[in-house]
Design a protein around this nucleic acid. Structure first.
Lengths: 314, 314
DNA sequence: AGAGGTTACGGGCAGCGTAAGGATC
DNA sequence: GATCCTTACGCTGCCCGTAACCTCT
């Protein structure tokens, strides 16, 4: 059957170089993909892929069809965008976010997306920024919030929000009682912050090195919950956006430290590949920016969000 | 569901101004059309037609969608044409022919189409040339063989074959035994030929009028079989393409008359509206021209075709 | 041995056709 | 009342998912 579903399947198989990958992308099983491609090949009377053991390659007919099929999908997207009620946009959008976002304005964004596009299914992948970037490039994500921009020119990158960082620590942590602390005051404890690849980690290590404190220990964590747990347990000083731990700051379990070196704020970017077939990415990225601004004005009562996460995560 | 089937349905409803007509065109029931349009409207979140009692009119969204949907169908046709194996072209093609064609090369054409496009469903409508023209304009036919060209510039018209006409009559008919007959010799009997609107009828009436034989009787028939029956029964002289009655001429039941006035041959034209979505029409009209030529070279043994028709028809 | 594509088979659901209902001319 | 679209409903057939099989690296 030569229909849009089969053509879309074909496009994803071609893009992702495999039936299996396409099945994952399209939320179905691999035999279903086989059936659809077989149906296309039967109807067109031509092989579309050479199955060579582990890898498949497009035949010349397949290459021809791919161009048509992509035009077809673009046309469909244009219909949905221009004719369809935006609120009735349906389908699947894959959003990737680093954990910080989960603990701050992601709930706001989810709520806004649900309000604006009630028919849209949202898949959220929480991972490190580099992994998300790889997923974007592999086209397994439609939009991602990242630390660093994607170099490829075919991607659009927008600055979306900036989180100031602060030094925080448990009251249990014995530190000098001075008005302002130096790095040396802190170096006795490990510094807990984001994982090694992130700008804050690099910046802190640079500062320590500059001040001859190379021996300072650093705990890089890919999990915010883990960072908070360690900070609460008095393992060390922690560098993170204070907004994430405002509950703990409010009830005194954590306190903010006045350190001579201010760590530059982390900027979050939102990246997507603009295309008519991906027009929702544009809209979602606007909603994300709004959500971040709204959150900055009035950070939600996060206890509902963060605390359960801590209990559940390892 | 926003898929090709529903979009095609929508296009036909818009073109034919009605659900019922689209149902006929698409070989399905009217409720099925309702369901498909309702599905589109649900998915797009917008009404596509205003149902105003007896007539439906496109909404502005509908007009917008129509343009997209037609582009979509064109794209699909291009895929089938360029990527697909021609032999696997499937679907429905509606062909209109006047009866003369049925009795001559239509069987050849049907055979050739079946050979070239085994998956194609052929609907054949046998009717008078003006009716066929109307059906073409109403888009209920894709291709038609006609006497006169369609005026509208968006239609393509090709000359396809020419049938010389001859005067024939039953041996029973008592006519002067001269070497060549004049119109006056014949005017004692009715002249049996095609129906009033056709060029041969008009021409014969013109000749009689010119020779002051205005009282001559004419029997116009829309049925060739009826013409042959009347001629065999000795009702009158008959003007038709001799190839149609070659069996009767061969066994002597009919004989050709040598009349001073030769009636100009009738030219058959094939008409269709060229469009990527109708690309098969082009191919079919080529096959039709070939079939006509092949038939002219070696007229088939028609006894199988014509005689049963005579028995069955009124 | 494991990853990936194909084939076989049973179940669920979309979409069809029949039939009855409502609205407009 | 005739025509045309809608709604209701039972049913069929397609497509999906599970599972076993096959084929390459």
């Amino acid at each position: 059957m030569l229909d849009l579903k089969n053509l879309e399947t074909f496009v994803w198989v071609a893009r992702l170089n495999g039936f299996r990958a396409a099945a994952d992308r399209l939320n179905t099983t691999q035999p279903a993909i086989s059936t659809r491609i077989a149906g296309l090949e039967r109807d067109l009377g031509a092989r579309l892929f050479d199955r060579r053991g582990r890898q498949i390659i497009l035949t010349s007919k397949g290459i021809e069809l791919l161009a048509y099929a992509e035009r077809m999908l673009v046309l469909k997207a244009e219909i949905v965008q221009n004719v369809g009620n935006p609120a009735s946009a349906s389908g699947l959008l894959r959003l990737g976010v680093p954990e910080t976002i989960v603990h701050t304005w992601l709930p706001v964004l989810i709520e806004r997306i649900a309000a604006a596009y009630p028919e849209l299914t949202l898949d959220i992948e929480v991972d490190s920024s580099p992994s998300l970037k790889a997923a974007l490039l592999a086209e397994t994500l439609d939009v991602a919030v990242l630390f660093a921009p994607v170099d490829e020119p075919r991607f659009t990158t927008r600055s979306i929000c900036s989180f100031p960082l602060a030094w925080v620590a448990s009251a249990k942590l014995s530190l000098p009682k001075r008005r302002q602390l130096s790095l040396a005051d802190i170096a006795g404890w490990p510094v807990i912050t984001f994982r090694r690849e992130t700008p804050p980690y690099q910046e802190i290590r640079r500062l320590f090195a500059r001040d001859g404190l190379a021996g300072a220990r650093m705990f890089g964590s890919s999990s915010i919950a883990a960072m908070v747990r360690l900070a609460l347990d008095g393992v060390g000083a922690c560098v993170l956006p204070p907004v994430i731990v405002q509950t703990e700051l409010g009830d005194g379990r954590l306190k903010q430290l006045n350190v001579e070196h201010v760590i530059p704020a982390i900027d979050f970017l939102i990246c997507f590949r603009p295309s008519p077939a991906n027009y929702l990415a544009e809209a979602i990225s606007k909603l994300a920016a709004e959500s971040a601004r709204a959150y900055a004005r009035a950070p939600a009562n996060r206890s509902k969000i963060l605390i359960p996460k801590i209990e559940n995560e390892d």
